[in-house]
């Protein structure tokens, strides 16, 4: 009984937001749409979107989809994984809260990325009901993404600011180009992880915003109107940004998974039981290890 009322209330709310108002795309704004294509003074976003979507995005995604794993396969075969001693002590690095949030984010990525790619390559899947379902899954898993990425942003924020170590780390590509167990300059998170963090959070927020804009189409933003940006140009920009960022997200997601599962043997356990091998910390997060040592925690 109660749930019925909740549903009715939600429906009423949603109709307030979307149904009652005239479409921002087609009502009087249709003129802006037309003028905004490639007429004088327009942003030419229509053209750019058409060119990008018709000729560049698909090959680029294909490149990332196969190129990144290929590079890693090469890395795995030529250099191979880092294997750290499992005999030394374990260091407790991730609390339960961290791990749960990370797990939710992980699930959302596992849902978002394939469904997103299926939409991008919809014709390969024949379009229709299957891809439509994927589109809805993509939308619904965004909710999971939101509930994980917001706490994640705050819980790790203080370790994520740029540090001198990061530059050094980047110069030696994190020490992944050889198998020497030389200490790598990095704090609790290395430059690679930081990049992934910023992409996943700030980039993630942008993905959420642009995705929602495209999904609902009619979200009315006064800030756009007051800056003379037509809804349709906003949507075009959203599509371009969403796809471009998507490329980066897919590439770094693959990297993240490769690192955790293959490149560093056993690294994935830290996100399951919260512990890292002491040697792993000593080598890969040497600055952090020094810190812990100074505090006498190891």
């Amino acid at each position: 009984m109660k749930s019925k009322y909740i549903i009715i209330a939600l429906l009423a709310l949603s109709s307030l937001a979307f149904g009652a108002s005239e479409s921002v795309v087609w009502s009087d704004n249709l003129i802006d749409n037309i003028l905004g294509y490639d007429k004088k003074g327009s942003l030419h976003l229509g053209q750019y979107f058409t060119i990008l979507q018709s000729t560049y995005f698909k090959p680029l995604f294909l490149g990332v989809l196969f190129g990144v794993p290929a590079v890693f396969l090469l890395h795995y075969m030529v250099i191979g994984p880092m294997i750290f001693s499992h005999d030394r002590k374990k260091i407790y690095v991730f609390t339960l809260f961290h791990r749960v949030i990370h797990a939710i984010a992980g699930v959302s990525f596992i849902l978002l990325i394939p469904t997103g790619l299926i939409m991008m390559f919809a014709s390969t899947f024949g379009g229709g009901e299957f891809v439509r379902v994927c589109k809805e899954i993509h939308a619904i898993s965004t909710l999971l993404f939101i509930v994980s990425i917001v706490p994640m942003f705050f819980m790790w924020l203080r370790w994520m600011f740029i540090h001198l170590d990061d530059i050094k780390w980047l110069m030696i590509v994190g020490g992944y180009l050889n198998k020497d167990k030389k200490p790598v300059p990095a704090g609790r998170f290395n430059a690679g992880q930081k990049t992934w963090y910023w992409l996943a959070t700030l980039g993630g927020f942008i993905m959420i915003g642009t995705g929602a804009a495209m999904y609902f189409q009619d979200i009315r933003l006064d800030i756009l109107a007051s800056n003379h940006i037509s809804q349709i140009d906003f949507l075009r920009a959203s599509a371009i940004v969403h796809n471009a960022l998507g490329l980066a997200v897919v590439a770094l997601f693959f990297t993240h998974v490769y690192m955790a599962v293959f490149a560093i043997k056993g690294a994935i356990h830290s996100m399951i039981d919260g512990h890292k091998e002491e040697e792993e910390v000593e080598i890969l997060h040497s600055s952090y290890y020094r810190e812990l040592k100074e505090k006498g925690e190891v």
């Binding site: 979307f18 149904g19 795309v25 087609w26 249709l30 749409n33 037309i34 294509y37 490639d38 976003l45 229509g46 979107f49 058409t50 979507q53 939409m119 919809a122 024949g126 379009g127 229709g128 891809v131 439509r132 589109k135 495209m214 189409q217 349709i232 949507l235 075009r236 599509a239």
Partner: peptide, 22 residues
Amino acid sequence: EKCIGCAYCLYACPFGAPQFPS
């Protein structure tokens, strides 16, 4: 039957022709 309602066509269209029923 193939269309998934992604609205890409709308972004590309110079005339705002494609429409999407709620």
